[in-house]
């Protein structure tokens, strides 16, 4: 396309470059700054004198003897047992991803192959369900869950997140399965397979690109959730994001904000790794949803 349009005039090129540079700084600098600051003491990162202290780390040098310190991480991970929250996050997000994919693949495949009117209505219902604010659903769960005595434990949260995730998963996998030619599984059935055998032997081997993309978004939903996990988990079972929120209340009074900064950085790292390795799938997933509507 660039060749067709030709070269940009130098002035425009400079302006574009400058604006892009500003955007890249706006997008990346907060993360870089917080990562850098997480190795300082509070008097530097939240300096009353000048933010320049956060760069030089003068107070960190005075308090700990070095310009970088791991105190924040030590406090969060060991003293305040952030590792427990990290472990819970691993359990919750992995379970949510695998269960939603299992349930969603079956459903998405059926929706793509049915062609009946009711399949369309299920999709419409899913669209409505997807739009529901999570916190309003949570206010519907609390009372019944208290009564049934299943509030506060990990399995309840996992199942709730799987259900909340289903509408999106169904839509995404449905449109993905529409792209796999019908002839493929139908010819297998002509050869004597049942529908389920056809699904297992013909469709499963070719469905991985779509499933991986959908899985990434299920993972993100489970990982990023705050509304459900903060309200449905007891204090001991909290995952990382609600744990950080619960840190804030107790920590600020004790003057240990750096614990929260360190745990925020810790919780961000897996997301960066995810984007690093799966950038292409994330982008294609977002566009597929948009282009197909």
């Amino acid at each position: 396309m660039t060749t067709a349009i030709g070269r940009m005039p130098t002035g425009l090129r400079w302006v574009t470059g400058l604006l892009l540079a500003i955007w890249f700084i706006a997008a990346a600098f907060p993360f870089v700054w917080t990562l850098w600051g997480s190795f300082k003491v509070e008097a530097d990162f939240f300096s009353r004198v000048s933010w320049w202290n956060a760069i030089t780390g003068d107070r960190t040098l005075m308090q700990t003897g070095e310009r970088f310190t791991l105190d924040g991480y030590e406090g969060a991970w060991i003293t305040r047992e952030f590792w427990r929250a990290a472990l819970n996050t691993v359990i919750v997000t992995l379970s949510v991803t695998f269960i939603s994919l299992f349930v969603g693949t079956l459903g998405g495949y059926a929706l793509a192959r049915s062609g009946q009117r009711y399949a369309f209505w299920i999709l419409i219902a899913a669209l409505v369900f997807r739009a529901m604010p999570h916190i309003t659903l949570v206010s519907g769960y609390m009372l019944p869950f208290f009564e049934l005595n299943i509030w506060g434990i990990l399995p309840t949260t996992i199942i709730v997140l799987v259900a909340i995730n289903q509408p999106f998963t169904l839509w995404m996998l449905h449109s993905f399965f529409l792209g796999i030619p019908k002839d493929l599984d139908e010819s297998a059935m002509v050869d004597g397979c049942t529908r389920f055998q056809a699904f297992r032997m013909v469709i499963i081997p070719v469905m991985w690109p779509g499933v991986i993309t959908t899985g990434l978004f299920s993972f993100l939903l489970g990982y990023n959730d705050f509304a459900v996990t903060s309200m449905l988990l007891s204090q001991d079972n909290l995952t990382m994001v609600p744990k950080i929120a619960s840190f804030l209340g107790t920590i600020q009074s004790e003057g240990n904000v750096m614990f929260a900064v360190a745990s925020v950085v810790s919780a961000t790292v897996p997301l960066f790794i995810l984007v690093l390795f799966f950038q292409r799938q994330i982008v294609s997933g977002l566009t597929a949803g948009a282009v197909k509507g």
Partner: peptide, 16 residues
């Protein structure tokens, strides 16, 4: 095929 997904959505989205 669709049962698990629909049951999950009914129980945890429609019912709430």
């Amino acid at each position: 095929f669709i049962m698990p997904a629909v049951v999950a959505m009914l129980l945890f989205i429609a019912l709430p």
